[in-house]
């Protein structure tokens, strides 16, 4: 309840990332690709003296299409001592949740169901609250 959320668009759908986990939102300039990694790992990008691992949220959820974002906005998140940049279609605003996350009867559909903590209500309507750990772990075939 009253949790702050980073409102963003992942794979064409409105979604939310817990704002407490997000260090900053970044417009990625250049990504250095890393050959040999799974597709959802786009590469690395420098942020000051750190190298961020760039992860495409859409591919990480198991969708076929990579994130489509002209601005290449990404949420910077630290997990387990490493810093990641989660690439999303768009990241607009920070909003307040007006409800606790709840499960939706019938599920959220393939891809979403696994990575979702649940659905939360906001002033601008319901959004899927995603779990950053699941996204970082990658698509189901690899996470298994």
């Amino acid at each position: 309840m009253n949790e702050l959320l980073l409102m963003c668009t992942i794979a064409g759908r409105r979604a939310a990332i817990p704002a407490l986990r997000v260090q900053s939102v970044l417009e990625i300039d250049t990504i250095t690709p890393i050959p040999g990694t799974c597709a959802y790992v786009c590469g690395i990008t420098p942020l000051r003296s750190q190298a961020l691992t760039v992860i495409d949220c859409s591919l990480a959820l198991g969708f076929d299409q990579p994130s489509n974002s002209p601005e290449r906005r990404a949420a910077v998140i630290e997990h387990d001592g490493h810093t990641y940049a989660l690439l999303v279609d768009a990241a607009e605003d920070v909003a307040q949740a007006t409800s606790d996350p709840v499960a939706i009867p019938g599920g959220l559909g393939e891809g979403w169901q696994r990575a979702a903590i649940g659905m939360v209500e906001t002033e601008s309507g319901p959004v899927v609250l995603v779990d950053v750990e699941t996204i970082i772990a990658g698509p189901p075939a690899l996470a298994a």
């Binding site: 990694t37 190298a51 992860i55 387990d80 490493h82 990641y84 970082i136």
Partner: peptide, 12 residues
Amino acid sequence: KPIAPAIMATRL
């Protein structure tokens, strides 16, 4: 600097 597990997994 250390790299993320997802990249480490390539063993490259």
